[in-house]
């Protein structure tokens, strides 16, 4: 077996007395999509923040291509090619597409002594941003367009395109479809598949199995800070994943409860239907009576 691109071994993270992660292990390889599934509070965000250098793990190891590494800041993680597209997006809504694209890593004229006072290479930035967006299939009309005018899906794609351009090997997507409509979510899933085809490792965090299942190769299911298990796609069905994520017993219980609701609802509908039928029958009888009366009147004297 080859060494995975990135591997987490028994990650423990505590915040004071709160144990956010309790011994989570998983791994992801090149050209593979790992889905981190878990309900709210399962520890997905903490795991991601650990992986992207925001949190330093209390215990456990992060291995990149088999070598243990320590991230002290998001910049460290970036240096190893780990790019994170955060839930709240690393996007500036009031700035232009090209300024956002190069935020923090601006192309400059490169005079060392000037430091951050180096001049921006604006033409290059505009051109590159437009090209990279085009590669992802989004034709931006104007690189100076303010990002606030773009749709949620387009913003996700901007963040993804930027990560790829800056040489990400591992792309972490934190709930990229959570705030999107059905169609936009589909667009983002398509880009995830595209990123995978480029040979990047993708870690896709979601609590939506229907978004995860079509693109994932591998699932790691988190529950209350612990790993419930890691499964390859060929070994599990969508229903299995859903069952594991919510917990089989809990889900069965929920189903039973729902059936109970449905029965109650159904009974109410039956009752209504019969009442309606009765009313209709009464009306029909009335009509017949009237008809008969009018007929007899016609026949009359």
């Amino acid at each position: 077996m080859t060494t995975p691109l990135i591997e987490l071994k028994d990650i423990v993270k505590t915040f004071g007395s709160v144990i956010a992660l309790n011994g989570v292990s998983t791994s992801v390889d090149k050209g593979q999509v790992l889905c981190l599934l878990g309900d709210n509070g399962a520890g997905k965000s903490t795991l991601i923040k650990t992986l992207s250098g925001v949190h330093i793990p209390t215990k456990g190891e992060i291995l990149i291509e088999g070598k243990p590494v320590t991230f002290r800041s998001p910049r460290d993680a970036q240096r190893y090619g780990i790019a994170t597209v955060h839930q709240h997006l690393s996007i500036q809504p009031l700035m232009s597409v090209s300024r956002n694209f190069f935020m923090g890593q601006e192309p400059t004229s490169g005079q060392n002594w000037l430091g951050p006072l180096n001049l921006l290479r604006k033409d290059f930035a505009d051109k590159t941003a437009a090209e990279e967006m085009a590669k992802m299939g989004i034709d931006i009309r104007d690189p100076n367009q303010i990002v606030g005018t773009m749709s949620g899906g387009e913003r996700q794609v901007l963040a993804i395109a930027r990560a790829i351009y800056f040489g990400a090997k591992v792309l972490i997507l934190d709930e990229p479809t959570a705030a999107l409509g059905v169609k936009q979510a589909g667009v983002v899933l398509k880009y995830i598949a595209q990123v995978k085809a480029k040979g990047l490792a993708v870690v896709f965090i979601t609590h939506n199995v229907h978004h995860a299942y079509p693109v994932a190769d591998k699932f790691t299911i988190l529950k209350r800070g612990q790993s419930y298990g890691t499964f390859m796609k060929e070994d599990v069905s969508r229903e299995d994943v859903l069952a594991m994520m919510a917990g089989k017993e809990e889900l069965d219980e929920l189903e039973a409860e729902l059936e109970e609701f449905a029965r109650a609802d159904g009974a109410r509908v039956d009752g209504k239907a019969s009442a309606l039928e009765a009313a209709a029958a009464a009306e029909r009888a009335l009509a017949q009576n009237l008809h008969a009366e009018s007929e007899s009147l016609k026949k009359g004297p």
Partner: peptide, 17 residues
């Protein structure tokens, strides 16, 4: 026109991102 300028806009727009 400078990198610092971009950082100033970014810092004020959304410091965390």
């Amino acid at each position: 026109r400078t990198q610092l300028g971009n950082w100033i806009f970014g810092t004020g727009g959304h410091a965390e991102s």
